[in-house]
Design a protein around this nucleic acid. Structure first.
Lengths: 149, 149
DNA sequence: GTTTTTGCAAAAGATTTGCAGCCAA
DNA sequence: TTGGCTGCAAATCTTTTGCAAAAAC
């Protein structure tokens, strides 16, 4: 099924007369396995397994994926995270500040309220970003030492 | 009343055995007049009116203000915005992608739902960040040319 | 063949840090 | 007097860009 997902990206790019290369395939392959990933971790992964891929190629490819609706960039704190949105709708994030674990969630009631707030202020909503920070159950019981997080 | 606000910051820093300087006063003064401000605009302002203040001094002072509960840093897109939270509770933002205008809002119902989501996932909530992006009424009627935004 | 992508190096932009001298408490 | 603050310059980090060679279609 990963093969199928790859194929979807490939043909979508093709329709925009963008090209497919081994580097691009490696990056997309790695990206599609994750729910969210950073440039840094992609870089680490790609240069550990497989061919050497410089940072700027990764940046460029991720930008292409964003422009074509497969990825969405967002900043969690310091790092820019790339969200895999090819198979998911809009969603929000719950982030554990202890271990870094991220839980995705969708809440129609919150979405409804967002629309109301926008409307009340005369805005036409085009994007939203909700991040909730806290400690997950595990971290409250067994705090992760910062060095290991 | 600005004088009073300044005094509050000053004595709070004093209690943490941090010092007060003319530069710090200028920065705090400029910051307290705003709801949110960027380093860049503070820099522009301070070096237009008043004494010369280098960027690193502004960064350092804003960090001190964050650490002492007067400011809160958050990234809206590219720029880090410093929120004046000394006189306000937690709040969220509605951001016009046309003109850059920012509206603050508080919505108890959304807050309630956030708590529920956190609870349902076993998280103890410590922070939240909700940004809604869209076009304000003015920008839908009279779009602002990017160059002027 | 033409156009896009790659990879290197360099640039750009934001933020931080080292350090000597200055200044507030 | 002492330890924090300033200001300069340099370092760091992330992301972008110029460009010639290589690859894709």
């Amino acid at each position: 099924m990963t093969q199928e997902a790859i194929e979807r990206v490939r043909s979508s790019l093709g329709r925009s007369r963008l090209r497919w290369s081994p580097q691009r395939e490696q990056i997309v392959l790695a990206f599609l396995k994750q729910d969210h990933i950073t440039i840094r971790s992609l870089y680490g992964f790609l240069n550990r397994n497989g061919r050497r891929t410089p940072l700027n190629t990764i940046y460029r490819t991720m930008r292409v994926l964003c422009e074509n609706g497969f990825a969405q960039a967002r900043r969690f704190g310091e790092e820019t995270q790339y969200d895999n949105i090819s198979t998911k709708g809009d969603h929000d994030h719950l982030i554990c500040t202890g271990c870094g674990h991220i839980v995705e969630f969708e809440d129609p009631a919150i979405e409804e309220l967002r629309q109301q707030v926008a409307l009340a202020n005369g805005f036409h909503l085009t994007g939203r970003n909700l991040e909730l920070y806290g400690l997950c159950a595990g971290c409250r019981s067994y705090p992760v030492p910062p060095a290991m997080a």
